[in-house]
């Protein structure tokens, strides 16, 4: 189930009209949501000069690069170049696009041609995303949670929690989900403590 998918963020952190950076299998992505709510995940490089598209801005159903304002539609194709307003951009000017879906308030990116659907965590709601230098083993030890398919799962004094772990060469990003009845503030502070303890072990 769902092993082809990697969590890159939480829906609550990406309202309409916002772009944000994310990591997927060591690739830097720009994940953005159009005014109408359509979600896209692209290589985080403008085909023009390589500026990060996650620094760009969303107008309607387009993402524009912050550097020279090249405008891209949700298909990834460049549709307008401000310095050449009469030019119809050639089809070869296109951002590299990735398969991106939302399930249960989590944003997932999958390999091209992924056939299954992302995992669902019934009974849990998104809490927050936190990045850490600690690895999964240190986080398991510091949290006292059980290993599960996508990360760590268990209960705390503040309520049930599920930590989806997305690892890259430089960091682990924790996408934390809270059981519906959990105390979100207490759980958020518990997670800060887990990260501190896990990092102290790594750095010790």
């Amino acid at each position: 189930m769902g092993t082809e998918w990697v969590a890159v963020g939480l829906s609550r952190d990406l309202p309409a009209g916002v772009a944000m950076p994310a990591l997927w299998q060591g690739r830097e992505l720009a994940v953005w949501r159009s005014a109408s709510g359509k979600l896209s995940a692209w290589n985080d490089r403008c085909p023009h000069r390589g500026m990060r598209l996650s620094h760009g801005f969303v107008r309607g159903e387009t993402l524009a690069c912050i550097y020279h304002g090249w405008v891209y539609g949700t298909s990834g194709s460049c549709i307008h170049i401000p310095a050449h307003p009469d030019l119809v951009p050639p089809a070869t000017i296109k951002a590299e696009t990735f398969l991106c879906v939302e399930a249960g308030g989590v944003i997932w990116v999958g390999a091209a041609g992924a056939t299954d659907t992302p995992p669902e965590f019934a009974g849990y709601v998104p809490l927050r995303s936190v990045a850490t230098q600690a690895d999964a083993a240190a986080l398991a030890q510091a949290s006292g949670l059980e290993q599960a398919a996508q990360g760590l799962l268990g209960s705390t004094a503040a309520g049930g929690v599920c930590l989806i772990l997305s690892t890259s060469q430089t960091k682990t990003t924790i996408h934390a989900l809270a059981a519906k009845e959990a105390d979100r503030v207490a759980l958020s502070r518990w997670l800060d403590g887990v990260v501190r303890r896990a990092e102290e072990r790594v750095l010790a």
């Binding site: 990406l14 916002v18 995303s129 936190v130």
Partner: peptide
């Protein structure tokens, strides 16, 4: 600043 979604929305 990539890893701070709430800071990103606060700055917006």
């Amino acid at each position: 600043l990539d890893d701070y979604p709430s800071i990103r929305l606060w700055m917006r």
